[in-house]
């Protein structure tokens, strides 16, 4: 078949990478051009707005695109889901609190909720402690930048990619076979029996949590490191002159100095942890009692068509995140008032 006839086929049948590339490149260009045109038009109208009420018109034009998208894409769905949580599987009949009764009487769902609580208890605390320790240990050391990059790097890797990386770390081969996973190899070198890390509850949840900690520690480390460097030198110096040992100065100077940052780090990681979905899905698919709410929500609504139960789980997750956000909103309000 000649090139000409290949070009005549629809792109899907061609399997031609170059064609695919050109087609998608074209799509991206068109998309960007259309977007640029829309934005240009908005700014043009804002520019030409009549003097009277110009501020209001300009304000509306600036805010409207984002607000409309958010109202349609997040606010309306959130309200709709909250309502759906009180309806049956197909969303047709009002059933009161039945979905919540179901949730709190099903042992598997209770395990799921419990797992989520374990995640949110462990990931933020351990990530923050390890990140803080590391930040202090390498502070002002040689090669601080490289050492930081190493721990920070997992932040750039997708949850799915991280799942693959750790699936290989946890790989298991029975006694008598050569191990392919580093963790079991270390156990064997130390004279132990290889373990099925991801199979045995409740420990398997901990091994999934390690993956999340691996990712989030870099985030904690970078922020805390910056905060430590921000503590005024005079205070640290004064503590030292007062005869404080490093441990005392850590508790009395460093911790108070970075308190605000610690709060930020913990709350941020908590929200990310409550929403965790990809790690569980890629590594155990929620089997062996490792499911978490975000994963179970997807399974209920989309795999099993139980939209009401899925919505109820979403609502529970929302309620769990709410206190964290309320706290942050209060901080935010204070700051805007100060400004």
């Amino acid at each position: 078949m000649t090139l000409v006839s290949i070009a005549g086929l629809p792109a899907a049948a061609r399997g031609d990478l170059l064609g695919q590339f050109l087609e998608k490149f074209g799509l991206v260009i068109i998309g960007l051009a259309v977007f640029a045109a829309v934005i240009g038009l908005i700014l043009f109208i804002a520019d030409k707005a009549p003097k009277r009420g110009r501020d209001v018109i300009q304000l509306l034009l600036f805010v409207a695109p984002a607000v409309i998208l958010l109202a349609v894409g997040l606010v309306y769905p959130a309200i709709r889901t909250a309502v759906l949580a009180f309806f049956d599987a197909r969303g047709e009949n009002f059933i009161g609190f039945d979905n919540f009764v179901w949730m709190f009487t099903q042992p598997t769902i209770l395990t799921t909720i419990l797992n989520t609580l374990v995640w949110v208890a462990l990931v933020p605390t351990i990530s923050t402690i390890v990140g803080m320790a590391y930040a202090i240990f390498i502070d002002k050391s040689k090669g601080e930048k490289v050492l930081k990059s190493i721990v920070f790097m997992p932040m750039a890797i997708s949850f799915v990619g991280a799942g693959v990386i750790w699936t290989f770390v946890y790989a298991y081969k029975a006694t008598g076979f050569e191990q392919t996973g580093i963790l079991n190899q270390i156990v064997v070198w130390l004279g132990g029996e290889p373990q099925q890390w991801l199979l045995v509850p409740p420990w398997n949840t901990l091994f999934l949590i390690i993956v999340m900690i691996w990712i989030q520690t870099g985030f904690a480390m970078v922020l805390i490191s910056a905060a430590i460097k921000g503590i005024p030198t005079e205070i640290v110096e004064a503590a030292r002159l007062d005869g404080a040992n490093p441990w005392q100065s850590f508790w009395n100077v460093t911790i108070p100095g970075i308190r605000g940052t610690l709060v930020v780090v913990v709350t941020t990681i908590s929200i990310a942890t409550l929403k965790v979905f990809d790690i569980v899905r890629a590594m155990t698919a929620g089997n062996f009692n490792t499911s978490v709410i975000a994963n179970e929500m997807y399974t209920q609504a989309f795999r099993q068509g139980q939209f009401g139960q899925g919505a109820a789980l979403a609502l529970i997750l929302f309620v769990m995140v709410l206190p964290i956000v309320i706290y942050n909103v209060r901080v935010l309000r204070k700051q805007r008032e100060i400004r």
Partner: peptide
């Protein structure tokens, strides 16, 4: 990206937060 939500913190540390400056000047 893993951290989809970043929240505000307390004011007061920002002046020293730009890491590069600190590494150079504050070391």
């Amino acid at each position: 990206m893993s951290t989809a939500s970043v929240v505000p913190g307390t004011p007061g540390v920002e002046e020293a937060l730009v890491e590069d400056q600190n590494l150079r000047g504050g070391k």
